[in-house]
């Protein structure tokens, strides 16, 4: 049974219809990369799954819980952690408190346990020793790595990654992608909206390609970058444009 079932959803912003009768499923494991041109609904899809956007019709089930029911949202959000394009570390807290506050206040985790876990995660993202830094003392790449660690503090079963490297320079992007590869190696389920093709080729199990709210391709990473890429002119052009920067 899939972890996330997107069933015939419709989503509009005013007169702009992003999805109309759109369906897709995401399994209990693996890394799925979501590709597609800008404004095609990739981020909206993740935001709908997380309940940050409401859907107009259809349904999205996460572990069989509907995002349309308000009372399910907390459980769904704890199951699906999300990291955004613009890092929003809480500015009144240092790095360690950014990680510790949520499990302590939301999941009622013992503070000492949370601190130990936060330190372990900071080591994992290569930022051990920076626990007392403030957000404005960190580079963009470091902030994103902290944001990933913050999401992981809640023990999510899946991570929704919304173009988390698009505001970073190549060096910082590489730092962040290394962390994601590590997490993928640990078996964390990921849905990643990204334009990092090399990341998709190295780490993803599945690639889906969206255009104007439609599923143009849904394939294993090998099939996508060999067969589909050469057979679908639109996808080939998109990938060429990305590779040309």
């Amino acid at each position: 049974m899939p972890m996330i079932e997107v069933k015939n959803i419709r989503k509009s912003f005013g007169s702009n219809t992003v999805f109309d009768d759109f369906s897709v499923n995401f399994d209990q494991s693996g890394v799925t990369v979501i590709l597609g041109p800008s404004g095609t609904g990739k981020s909206t899809l993740l935001r709908c799954i997380n309940g940050l956007e409401t859907i107009d019709a259809g349904d999205i089930l996460v572990d069989s819980l509907s995002v349309k029911e308000k009372r399910n949202l907390r459980e769904i959000r704890l199951a699906c952690g999300m990291v955004f394009q613009q890092t929003t570390l809480f500015p009144h807290l240092d790095v360690l408190e950014n990680l510790v506050i949520s499990p302590v206040k939301i999941q009622k985790m013992d503070r000492k346990e949370a601190v130990d876990k936060a330190r372990a995660l900071l080591d994992k993202v290569g930022l051990g020793g920076r626990e007392h830094s403030k957000h404005n003392e960190l580079s963009g790449g470091e902030q994103q790595r902290i944001a990933i660690a913050r999401a992981m503090m809640m023990n999510p079963r899946a991570l929704l990654l919304d173009e988390i490297t698009s505001a970073l320079d190549p060096e910082m992007t590489a730092e962040v992608l290394r962390i994601l590869e590590k997490l993928a190696g640990d078996g964390v389920v990921m849905l990643a909206v990204t334009h990092e093709i090399s990341f998709a080729q190295r780490v993803a199990d599945r690639v889906i390609f969206l255009e104007k709210g439609n599923l143009v391709a849904d394939a294993s990473v090998d099939d996508f970058f060999s067969g589909i890429k050469s057979n679908n002119e639109r996808i080939a052009r998109f990938l060429q444009n990305i590779s040309q920067g």
């Binding site: 997380n50 309940g51 940050l52 949202l73 907390r74 959000r77 704890l78 952690g81 999300m82 955004f84 613009q86 929003t88 809480f90 949520s102 206040k105 939301i106 999941q107 944001a147 913050r150 999401a151 809640m154």
Partner: peptide, 14 residues
């Protein structure tokens, strides 16, 4: 900023 609200909601805050 809205981003702080969304980050908190995404972490399971009411």
């Amino acid at each position: 900023k809205t981003g702080y609200y969304e980050s908190a909601y995404a972490l399971g805050y009411s």
